[in-house]
Amino acid sequence: MYPTPIKHASPLTNILYRISLPITILLWLMPLAAVMMTSIRSIQDINQGNYWGWPTSFNFIENYNMVFQSTEMGQYLLNSMIITLPAVLGAVALSTLAGFALAKYKFKANIWMLAIFIGGNFVPFQILMIPVRDLTISLGLYDTHMGLIMFHVAFQTGFCTLFMRNFIVGLPNELLESARVDGVSEFKIFWYIVLPLVRPALAALSVLIFTFIWNDYFWALVLVQSDTVRPVTAGLSSLQGQWLASWNLISAGAVVAALPPVALFFAMQRHFIAGLTLGATKG
């Protein structure tokens, strides 16, 4: 292990290290803590400039209630869900199929197909913007949930295919070969042998791209314009324009928007990090 385990150091070093941990955390998350503190302040505190002192009253319920009742925040959250869940499902499904093809079949274009999926995943969004917007309009999907879902499925397929391919490559070939000898069709091999084995990877991948899609802001600006479709990221920034002085409410809105991916991350931390590093380090 590197660095040397702190257990072997002197008791004083040990105590200092353990004290330093919460302090560095506090410094690291200070901007965030400030927003959370602000989100429970009263408007009197805000107007009097009491931003950093002890709140005169804790308006947790009032402020968060206000966010849901006087704005479209609830609708934005719902929209984000309606867009993100099917998009995750679609991208994972398509890329598991494609990843299987790239991992377990030898054909000439194999490595080039993989390169295309990976390369496409890194391109700047702006080079796609005008054509994708035109395409979405001509498909009649502009300003609909489906328009965003379709784009996210297509785009995330690049990263997801690399991810699934790297996972499936590690599955033993003997398993597939013996099934083939028994005359099992290729699709059944995929369905009954490969799919049950990749379940852990599916979980990791889903958690990861849930946050990617949930946090998207650019496409929410480009493909959507009405409140009934707008996801929470774009919704939050439009609220910011309307509520210039009500920092307590904007902060509450920000906390609400950040909550779902954060909750998912803490619930499935191991999957999340495994996903992030499998996609990356195998590369």
Binding site: T38, W214, T233, A234, L236, I250, A254, A257, A258, P261
Partner: peptide, 14 residues
């Protein structure tokens, strides 16, 4: 894990 929009907001505030 947090959206960049939220980070932008947090830092504007900061």
């Amino acid at each position: 894990v947090i959206s960049q929009v939220v980070i932008g907001l947090v830092f504007s505030w900061f």
